[in-house]
Design a protein around this nucleic acid. Structure first.
Lengths: 353, 353
DNA sequence: CTGAAAGCGCTTACAG
DNA sequence: CTGAAAGCGCTTACAG
């Protein structure tokens, strides 16, 4: 029999009174801790059901000091890499009884600071952050801000004080370039997704995120090892926006001597290169070889199927949560991990024309 | 000068004592309400800064009865439509000072019930839900569960008691079929993404979500209007999984008389049809015409570019938040909206072979 | 303009 | 096994 909806939500004390026990006893039954006889347990449960009792987690958190909530601060939740990671975060956390509060920064350091502050005020038990800068990290260091554990996701910072879960981006880019070189390419370009650049440029912006820096370093190292040229006209740093990136790609491909292969460092960059190639009448895998980052669903359906670097995205997200939960239990625990990526060879890489 | 990190987080009373005022006065300054002289205001602010004071939102919420948090219950956060919607939700909410707690259901009604319960226990101020069933909605009705306002996103339910923000899916599918018919197609297939089906089938499962039902009805209405056959062999309901959907698509396309055009009702279905066409050696836009749902980034880069139904996804998300905020202020407010979608004609539709 | 007191709804020792 | 009391950190009337 449903209560009239006008009634206020039942509180612990209402349940206790109806069951003729004290609040402490009712709390023990409902919270599932401490000792109670089976009879009183039943009585309390019955009362709770009749009143449609819902515990007030706010009050519980206030007393217990834990909110069972994790804050996630991410650059762009609509980006395919991050949203797959967040899916894994939500699943892993929920299995441990934690919920997720997600904030978006668009890689703006002010929004990131603000997000961290808000989450601390909401008393999250821990924080997973995709840092937008490798240097501006005061808000993440326990000395000045978080009394809560933090694990970095996808990107590292210039401090050994914060734990992280990242991919080996250096190695990934290195592998991709070697793949190009192994089939004979010697003019290789790079289209690099970068946050803090207005449109696109051929020089690396300052304060670039570690992911970007490591990929570029890995690529350049491989080029050097193969004795290949590193031509700045073949490198563009672009905002992660398809229209701007396509401009950048057309730019690269319109040089007198243009690269015969391009490494594109995320979904948008890969799409931009494909699109630019189309505009210029270049056939992918024949006139132009491409390797992209992240094994997005369309990659294997494209014609030709796109070779990509596959990052272990679900694992990255799950691991970030696991590390964080460990730190929540014991704040002195330190644990970081750099996971390997894998080259998925498909048909967008062929010998140079 | 930073405090030693061993110190406990400062509380309101610490600030008040350091500023030589009462807690009430400190609260007035920090909370930005009530009256205080400029001098005391400054004194309190200074004390708060020196102690690096962060308000405890838990305590504030408990007293004020508002958490400034909205719960979002969604089928799959990694799906491109939902994650774009969530991005808009996060942005719109954060502009109003609200944060978002996201839970994932994978269209499982038990997980949905559980999600709603958890969010109510966490005392969210409102709920945005993508319902996984049009009928099992007790947990969403104020009579039995939420004392919190609810707005449905993307899908409606069989009850006029819950507000919603949806797309006009009937009209969208209707338009797509007319487009096929207008260039001469008379054998038209449907690949329909559906949650509660194990693999794929040619009959509509029971309790299908309104989005699915409306699209199928719209398509069938258009077929009827054009005097075209509705052949059940040309219709498959499939789980939203590329491998299963591709099987279904191959199934449709392997009939003796196969359709010359297919409407695919989400990103995965579209990809599946493209992939199946590739396997069967059919050229898209020539041997087989395709219209997909949702203008995902790869659609216009494909060769040929894919014609799609574009839903106003950012607007859907933003509007859901706006409606919800209105209901939070005044629970008696009722407001729902069905937004139009738009056909983006590209080159995946040509005359039948 | 400022303060003393009560209270939001729980859980946590402490007694018995 | 159960209960009375204190307290988590705020805000809200109510006085003055």
């Amino acid at each position: 029999m449903a209560q009239a909806p006008i009634d206020k939500a039942a509180r612990l004390i209402d349940v206790a009174e109806r069951a003729n026990v004290s609040r402490a006893t009712a709390a023990r039954v409902l919270g599932g801790y401490g000792l109670v006889t089976e009879v009183t347990r039943q009585r309390v449960m019955a009362a709770a059901n009749e009143l449609n009792y819902r515990v007030n987690e706010l009050a519980r958190s206030m007393r217990s000091g834990r909110t069972l909530t994790i804050g996630v601060v991410v650059a762009d939740i609509a980006n395919s890499f991050f949203n797959s990671a967040i899916r894994a975060i939500i699943e892993t956390a929920s299995r441990a009884g934690y919920q997720i509060l997600v904030l978006n920064t668009d890689d703006d350091i002010e929004r990131e600071r603000n997000a961290v502050r808000v989450l601390i005020e909401k008393r999250v038990d821990g924080l997973i952050v995709v840092p937008s800068s490798p240097d501006e990290i005061d808000h993440l260091l326990v000395e000045s801000e978080p009394e809560v554990p933090v694990v970095l996701l996808d990107r590292d910072v210039n401090s050994s004080k914060i734990d992280f879960v990242t991919t080996d981006d250096f190695e990934a880019a290195h592998t991709a370039i070697l793949q190009f070189a192994s089939v004979g390419h010697n003019r290789i370009g790079l289209l690099v997704a970068t946050a803090n650049v207005e449109t696109h440029s051929s020089t690396m912006p300052a304060q670039v995120v570690t992911t970007v820096r490591n990929r570029v370093c890995g690529a350049e190292m491989a080029l050097t090892e193969c004795g290949l040229e590193i031509r700045s006209e073949w490198i563009r740093y672009s905002q992660s926006n398809m229209d701007i990136a396509r401009e950048a790609a057309i730019n690269i491909l319109s040089q007198e001597t243009r690269p015969t292969a391009i490494l594109a460092t995320n979904e948008e960059m890969a799409l931009a290169v494909v699109s630019a190639a189309g505009d210029l009448g270049l056939t992918i895998g024949v006139d132009l070889s491409i390797i992209g980052f992240d094994d997005v669903p369309w990659a294997r359906v494209f014609n030709p199927p796109l070779s990509v670097i596959r990052r272990p995205v679900a694992q990255l997200g799950a691991m970030a949560v696991e590390f964080l939960l460990k730190k929540i239990e014991d704040p002195t625990v330190r644990r970081s991990q750099k996971l390997p990526a894998e080259l998925v060879a498909r048909r967008s890489v062929g010998p140079p024309p």
